[in-house]
Amino acid sequence: MELNKASDYDLVEELRRGDLEAFDQIFKKYGDRLFGFALTYLKSREEAEELVQDVFLKIWSNRKNLKKVSSLKSYLFTIAYHNMCRLFREKQIHEKYSKEIAFLGKQAANLEEQLEYKSTLEQVDRLIEKLPEKQKIIFIKSRREGKTSKEIADEMNLSPGTVDNQISAAIRFLREHISDTSFALLLYFEIFML
């Protein structure tokens, strides 16, 4: 079968068998369209490129479990749409807390508040040190060095899904072990601000 003339249905069938050429054909067919779609909403070439990479990485990682989709195009664009929604939610949360942190920073004029802030950061640092070694390295690379899951996965020879799971587990651990609810906003600052 000539894959460059194959139907989406046939391409998915070949992809399920691990055929790289089928994957390449799907990318050639839909990569630019997905990029244009993402760029329209994200307004950032870098974010649009990363989103397209994430979509195709997900397709490749889950190739054996792909169902016989009636429309590959709809399937790909649905994944892209959900990824964009997640990205917009993360940006909104990030922006909201950035503003609150900036406001708190202006308010934190007296020495006692500054000492409490420093103490909180030290507490978070101590908790990070208690994470399992691999989880700690992944968390620091993500939250302090600002690396993407894909970059970390490539560096550590892991799947991006494993990286995301390790980051989620680290955040859960920190939230569970922070000693005082008044520290919640500062904890968020430490975890999510890059």
Rank of each mutant, 00 (worst) to 15 (best):
N157D: 11
R89P: 06
K99A: 15
K130M: 09
H82D: 10
E100W: 09
M156A: 02
S149N: 14
N83W: 01
K73P: 01
K106Q: 13
L186F: 13
N157L: 11
L127I: 03
K130I: 03
M156H: 11
S142H: 14
I171N: 07
L104V: 04
D180V: 04
T148E: 07
I128Q: 05
L121E: 11
A153L: 00
K91A: 09
K106T: 12
A170G: 07
L87K: 14
P132K: 01
E112H: 14
Q107S: 10
L131S: 10
L127T: 01
I93M: 14
E116S: 00
R144C: 05
I128P: 03
R172T: 14
I140Y: 09
N83C: 05
Q92P: 04
D180T: 03
F173P: 00
K150P: 02
A109F: 15
T181I: 14
L174A: 09
E145F: 15
I138V: 15
N110L: 04
L72F: 10
L158Q: 06
D164M: 05
E90A: 02
A169F: 02
I152E: 08
A170N: 04
K99N: 06
D125F: 03
L115H: 11
T120F: 15
F88P: 06
E145L: 13
H177N: 15
F88I: 11
E155D: 12
F88M: 05
T78C: 01
H177Y: 12
E129V: 03
L158A: 04
Q92M: 13
Y81I: 02
E90K: 08
E122P: 06
N157I: 03
S71A: 03
